[in-house]
Each structure stands twice: as C-alpha cells, then as structure tokens.
Amino acid sequence: MVSSGSAMDPEQVVRRNPPGTKAEDFYKWSPQSFDEMDSTLAVQQYIQQTIRQDFTDTETILTAPPGQDEGVWKYEQLRQFCLELNGLAIKLQAECTPMTCSQMTATEQWIFLCAAHKTPKECPAIDYTRHTLDGAACLLNSNKYFPSRVSIKDSSVAKLGSVCRRVYRIFSHAYYHHRHIFD
C-alpha cells in the first residue's frame, strides 16, 4: 500500500496489510531486493516475497542470496515450510481421522513411529501430523537450540535435517492416501 501525500519522502512504501484489507488486496506492495532489506527478519521477508512472486519456481525460492549464511537460510526455509504446511494439515483434518488412517503410512510398506514424544510412540496419521508440526514449531522457536535468528550454531543445524525428514512424511502420506487434498 503506497501512502500518498507524504511530502517529505514520496518513495516511502509501507509494507503492511493494515486492518480492513480484503484478502485479494493482501501483499500488494512492490518487491524489494534483498540487499535493501534491513530488518532482522529480512530472510523471512525475502523468502515470502519470492514465493509470492512465483510459487512454482522452486529454484529461485531455494537459491540463497549471495553471502547469506547457509544455516540461517535453511532455518528460515524450514520455518516458512512449516507455516504453510499448516494449511495442508487443516485440510487433512477433515478427512484423515484415527478411524481411516490408524497408522502413519507413506506407501504400503512404510509405517512410521511418531518421534515427537519422549519415547517414540505409535500415533495415527493425523496425530502424527499434528505432533510433528507442533514439535517442529517448538524446536524452531526454542531458545535452547535457536536463540538467534541471524546466526545458527552448527550443532543446531543438524537438528533441521531430522525435522525435515519427519515433516516430509506428512507430504508423502497425503500424496498416497489423500490424493485429492494433496492436489
């Protein structure tokens, strides 16, 4: 939303959705290049912007801008991914119940344990989805492993891998068992 009538700085663009904006008017501001962003959440901003520009162009979305710390990039990507996956989880909720899918299956041969508990437990698919997403959110927000969003410890980067793996299984379950939602 471009604020007009600002005599002092006609170029000022406010990138916010003020209250009252309609859904189709969301995010209607001009994109900014990464170097110009100077907030602490620049990476998240950048990723979200790139997705909005073209959400099918995964290459561009995944390419880190030059000089960007790789750990932080992975972290932000994963974070964004989890944010958006919540939408899928909500849609799955309607169809995937403990009655229909009592185990977390990917294809017919792969049945998985839910690792979000103190000891791995057997959870129905929808519970697996919920627990894993909750667990991922807790981990990504925890101060112990990710105290800062601009620098990530190497030991914490390793945790991202296992989170990715578990979250990915939600996808594969949806693909094989709830195809229409997936599409």
Binding site: Q103, M104, W110, I111, F112, L113, A115, P120, E122, R165, R166
Partner: peptide, 9 residues
C-alpha cells in the same frame, strides 16, 4: 537406514 529406524514394525 535412518528411515527404516523410524518404522513401526
């Protein structure tokens, strides 16, 4: 192997 270690069976 990592995937299989997470399996129910």
């Amino acid at each position: 192997i990592v995937q299989t270690l997470d399996v129910l069976d």
